[in-house]
């Protein structure tokens, strides 16, 4: 469960309805993917950087949790520099590799965009409690509650799956097949995990059904999930960041709708 245990941070951020956090991340991300240009990404990134100061994360937690994004961004940027649509002066060419002015600009834009999209999502999700998320999805967004709660119950099994995974690995070593090829071992472990998890799932389904889950009675909720001014504010902030980024990009002539212009 450790990976999915929310980081509480400050109460102000933790207490915001997770639905609003997802909404904010969506508003921001969906706006930013509309264009690939370094200006909109950079503007968004700077504004986000300022807002992160209120996210309630220590620098250590922030960098630990966002590390994958910091690794992925340069990787994605480099791919685009090497293979991006060529334009302007050519610096280097080998087979399909074609480094040009244009591809370098696209590459930098890609790098910034990955950061601008990835970082706020991680920061917002680090403080999401799955139970609160499910409450929000069912009560605020009115998604079908059987599916929301089923997903939530499945999520609770993550800790058990990780334990299973460790035991399965040890057991393979004990059975004399622990040194076989990596791919074969991964496939065999994945399958075994699937068998164990489906069995667990079937048992869990019986237990949940025995507690009235899925009955035709209209369900009540022990915890209220509300959408108030804090939630609205968060979405407004996200929209403001997105609009500012677009406005600056368009006004400086950098806006590039889904990379339509090289």
């Amino acid at each position: 469960m450790s990976i999915l245990t929310p980081h509480r941070g400050t109460q102000a951020v933790y207490a915001i309805n997770p639905v609003a956090k997802i909404g904010a991340a969506f508003v921001l991300s969906l706006t930013l993917i509309l264009s690939i240009d370094w200006v909109s990404a950079a503007v968004a990134l700077v504004l986000e950087g300022i807002l992160f100061l209120w996210a309630g994360l220590t620098p250590r937690v922030f960098f630990l949790r966002t590390l994958p994004v910091w690794i992925a961004a340069p990787a994605a940027g480099l791919t685009t520099i090497l293979y991006g649509r060529p334009s302007g002066e050519t610096y280097f060419q080998f087979w399909l590799v074609h480094v040009t002015d244009g591809s370098i600009e696209l590459g930098i834009a890609t790098l910034l965009r990955v950061l601008a999209i990835g970082l706020p999502a991680v920061v917002l999700f680090v403080t999401v409690d799955p139970t609160d998320l499910a409450d929000g999805l069912a009560q605020v967004l009115h998604l079908p509650n059987r599916f929301v709660l089923g997903g939530l119950a499945g999520l609770r099994l993550v800790g058990l799956f990780l334990d299973d995974w460790r035991s399965l690995k040890l057991a393979r070593r004990a059975r004399g097949v622990g040194d076989s090829g990596r791919i074969r071992r991964f496939a065999s472990l994945g399958f075994a995990l699937l068998v164990l998890s489906i069995r667990r799932g079937s048992k869990l389904a019986t237990a949940m059904e025995a507690r009235g889950f899925g009955s035709p009675i209209k369900r009540t909720y022990a915890r209220a999930s509300t959408f108030g001014w804090r939630e609205t504010l968060l979405i407004v902030i996200a929209a403001a960041v997105a609009l500012t980024a677009v406005a600056v990009s368009v006004s400086t002539g950098h806006w590039n709708f889904i990379g339509s212009t090289g």
């Binding site: 059987r146 499945g154 799932g201």
Partner: peptide, 11 residues
């Protein structure tokens, strides 16, 4: 119910 839970578990 078992469909939902097993689908969840697979997910």
């Amino acid at each position: 119910v078992v469909d939902i839970i097993v689908a969840s578990v697979i997910g």
